[in-house]
Simulated scan of single mutants.
Amino acid sequence: MTTVCASSDIHSPRHLELFKKALEESRCDPDVFVLAGDVVERNNIAEYGRVLSLLKTRHPGTPIVAVFGNEEYRGFEKEYMEKYRDVVFLNDSYRILEARGSRLVVVGPRGALDKPTKWQEKNLPGLARYYSELPARLSELLSDASSTHLPILLVTHYGVTHRNLIGENPAVYPYLASVRMEEVIARHSGLLKAVIHGHAHNGAVESVEVGGVKVYNVALPARGRIVEVEV
């Protein structure tokens, strides 16, 4: 088993103190730590370093894997990757990780929504097409990852089902997740051992099963703590 500790939606500096408290109170002893997007607020790249400083102090030497959220703006991925080279950033990609003698594959896109927000429609042309095409692209990525014959952990920022969005306003469900991801998860349930996502700040349900695979919402405002996932 590989122990994964996970969090997201720190929106530093907004929830940085809550993240610090969550780390201090956590009993999770991670092989890998996952940051599932929206680590900073409004693309404040420097704030990412403050989050990492807290994380490394609490869990020195632990591999850190991250995906980008909507607050880590599109087009700035390379800047994050170059500034924080000790983080394994996934951007529609996957990586084999080795930690404490265990090996697993982490697959990481930002994720998709049922439909773009009005702001996204206005300011990010082409995003609706990306959301529409991502489930098929992710399925191909998972097929490639399965060739390693290692357990697979899928990490996205956006949700992958509506089943764990209870607590949110149902009117905004389409802007929090993509239900088309459910079919992708079920199709790859053989080696896909868990799914981690954030974005749903008010999601009252921590985990549900989709196609026999556990799906976790690790958004810090929703959980108030670090989430432990066994893969």
Rank of each mutant, 00 (worst) to 15 (best):
V160L: 03
V160M: 04
T161H: 05
T161Q: 02
T161I: 02
T161C: 02
H162L: 03
H162S: 09
H162F: 15
H162C: 04
H162N: 07
R163F: 02
R163V: 01
R163K: 15
R163P: 03
R163T: 04
R163E: 13
N164A: 06
N164W: 03
N164T: 07
N164S: 08
L165N: 09
L165G: 09
L165H: 08
I166P: 01
I166G: 05
I166V: 15
I166M: 03
G167H: 07
E168M: 04
N169H: 05
N169Q: 05
P170G: 03
P170F: 03
P170L: 03
P170R: 02
A171I: 15
A171T: 15
A171P: 10
V172N: 05
V172C: 06
V172L: 07
V172K: 01
Y173D: 05
P174I: 04
P174C: 08
P174G: 08
Y175A: 13
Y175P: 11
Y175G: 09
L176S: 12
L176W: 14
L176K: 13
A177I: 12
S178C: 15
S178Q: 12
S178A: 15
V179L: 12
V179F: 11
V179N: 10
R180G: 14
R180Q: 14
R180E: 14
R180T: 10
R180A: 13
M181H: 14
M181V: 08
M181W: 13
E182L: 10
E182A: 12
V184H: 09
V184C: 08
I185N: 03
I185A: 02
I185G: 01
A186G: 14
A186Q: 15
A186M: 14
A186P: 12
A186K: 15
R187Y: 14
R187V: 09
H188S: 06
H188P: 08
H188C: 05
S189G: 11
G190P: 07
G190I: 04
G190Y: 06
G190F: 06
G190D: 01
L191M: 10
L191H: 13
L191C: 09
L191D: 10
L191K: 10
L192P: 09
L192E: 04
K193G: 00
K193D: 00
A194L: 09
A194R: 15
A194S: 15
A194C: 09
V195W: 04
V195D: 00
I196P: 05
H197Q: 02
H197A: 03
H197G: 05
G198W: 11
G198K: 13
G198Y: 10
H199G: 01
H199V: 05
H201P: 05
H201R: 04
N202M: 04
G203A: 01
G203T: 00
G203W: 00
A204S: 10
A204R: 12
A204T: 12
V205Q: 02
V205T: 01
V205P: 01
